[in-house]
């Protein structure tokens, strides 16, 4: 969140500096796409815990963080890991075993909550969720909300449309703003100041970034400022929102980055299989996360063969005819 000309630092340092035990955090991407996985694995290696995670539809990053015991509170719309695990496995287990506190929302509610945060508003209205248990079932008790200044006192509030029946709506649901301590996203291109260009769907990354007190951007390509300034229409995030930039090629692996690489369905399946069994999961984590020094080390264990198999075709932006398990 500075205007310094050069915010480029190593990922390890960025995580040490901005992600603390108990931080309120959000991560970019959607299920199996553009999750900031290098950052997620670094958080796990640094054994940061007690995180309060805000998620719309999260997937691989969410499940790794929960599986590693980094998350104690979760506000979420959806936890799924594509075909490999339609419901994220460690997420489901953590809830079934009462290991985390959690609260459910819809995708639009969570996106609007980030948007309210980005706009500096206390809340935004929507017509979603009236009559459902998303309104009535609170994961965080009133007492807990009262005692924690970082958690809003009410989950969701329904009011009569203050403009009468204008636009035909009799009631609206108010969703409270989210302003995370830290948001981490992975993008195709960034410059040293932190201006970002995202290719393909941006999901809720832009709102998440603009709502957040600190922002770490990891990028496939660290490019010259001149390259991004030639096409400002393609830049969704100006540098003023960004605290740190980390150049991490393949930084979203095993999730996809449009135009660069596909998701690795084989890795995701291996992860899902391991996640079902505590012993297997420990072996998995030791091999791929704790047993390596950084993301480069992780990719060495994964092997060049997998990296080649998911390489995107320049015409379509994904790996054409890739064998998908």
């Amino acid at each position: 969140m500075t205007n310094s000309l050069n915010k480029v630092i190593p990922l390890k340092q960025a995580i040490e500096q901005y992600v603390k035990n108990g931080s309120h955090i959000s991560i970019g991407g959607f299920t199996i796409n553009r999750n900031p996985m290098a950052a997620v694995y670094e958080i796990i290696r640094q054994k940061i815990n007690n995180l309060h995670l805000y998620a719309h539809s999260n997937g691989t990053g969410l499940d790794e963080l929960i599986g590693a015991g980094c998350v104690s509170k979760l506000e979420i719309a959806y936890g799924g890991n594509g075909k490999a695990a339609p419901t994220c496995i460690r997420f489901a287990q953590a809830i079934q075993n009462n290991e985390i506190l959690f609260e459910d929302y819809s995708n639009y509610m969570m996106s609007l909550r980030f948007m309210a945060g980005a706009m500096g508003l206390p809340f935004l209205p929507t017509l979603s969720g009236l009559g459902t248990e998303i309104l009535t079932k609170w994961g965080f008790s009133r007492a807990m909300r009262k005692s924690d200044p970082k958690i809003v006192d009410e989950k969701l509030i329904v009011i009569d449309n203050p403009f009468g029946n204008w636009t035909g709506a009799s009631k609206v649901v108010l969703v409270p703003a989210i302003n995370p301590d830290i948001t981490i996203i992975h993008v195709q291109k960034a410059d040293a100041m932190g201006t970002c260009s995202i290719q393909g769907l941006s999901f809720a990354d832009i709102e998440q970034v603009k709502a957040s007190k600190q922002v770490i951007v990891t990028c496939e390509k660290l490019v010259d400022k001149e390259e991004l300034r030639q096409n400002p229409d393609l830049n969704q995030i100006p540098f003023i929102h960004v605290s740190a930039v980390c150049h991490v090629p393949l930084g979203a692996y095993p999730t996809a980055v449009f135009g660069h690489y596909d998701y690795d369905s084989r890795y995701l399946r291996k992860f899902a299989m391991a996640a079902k069994n505590p012993d297997e999961f420990k072996k998995y984590q030791d091999k791929y996360i704790y047993g390596v020094k950084d993301h480069k080390g992780f990719l060495n264990v994964v092997g060049q063969k997998r990296i080649d198999a998911i390489k995107a075709d320049p015409r379509t932006g994904y790996a054409v005819n890739m064998k998908r398990d």
Binding site: T31, K83, Y108, L201, E207, F258, Y318
Partner: peptide, 23 residues
Amino acid sequence: EELPFAVADPRIMYWAASNSRLT
């Protein structure tokens, strides 16, 4: 051109009229 396996599959981003965002 290929069947996507998720609503965030990069296969849905190809040749779309528009790639926007959740909001």
